[in-house]
């Protein structure tokens, strides 16, 4: 039997993107729940954030949980695409 789970809904702080993502990683390490990250306030991401995103994708794959990103703007989406990360996340509008 499979259970339907409600994903943990986490807002990414636009001023501390990398730190927010790091906290998500920690949560993910400690649980097996799907996560949905709200990027609605994030206008730009830096190389450090990208590194954490990569780590997050790896963790999600390892734990077989779904990591979704919500409200990602076009510029950030393009960065994720160029960094080959889009295929490792789900995107919600």
């Amino acid at each position: 039997m499979t259970m339907t789970t409600v994903p943990a809904y986490l807002e990414i702080d636009a001023d501390q993107v990398s730190e927010s993502l790091q906290r998500v990683c920690e949560k993910l390490t400690a649980s097996h729940d799907d996560v949905c990250l709200d990027f609605a306030n994030v206008r730009r991401i830096g190389p450090d954030s990208l590194k954490v995103m990569e780590k997050l994708a790896g963790l999600a794959e390892e734990k077989a949980v779904k990591a979704s990103l919500r409200g990602v703007n076009v510029n950030v989406y393009r960065v994720l695409k160029l960094a080959r990360l889009t295929s490792r996340f789900s995107f919600l509008s």
Binding site: R44, I45, G46, P47, L50, K51, N75, V76, R78, V79, L80, L82, A83
Partner: peptide, 12 residues
């Protein structure tokens, strides 16, 4: 990989 990430971020 480092250069690619920097270039990706630079697009913004």
């Amino acid at each position: 990989s480092q250069a690619r990430a920097a270039a990706a971020v630079f697009t913004q």
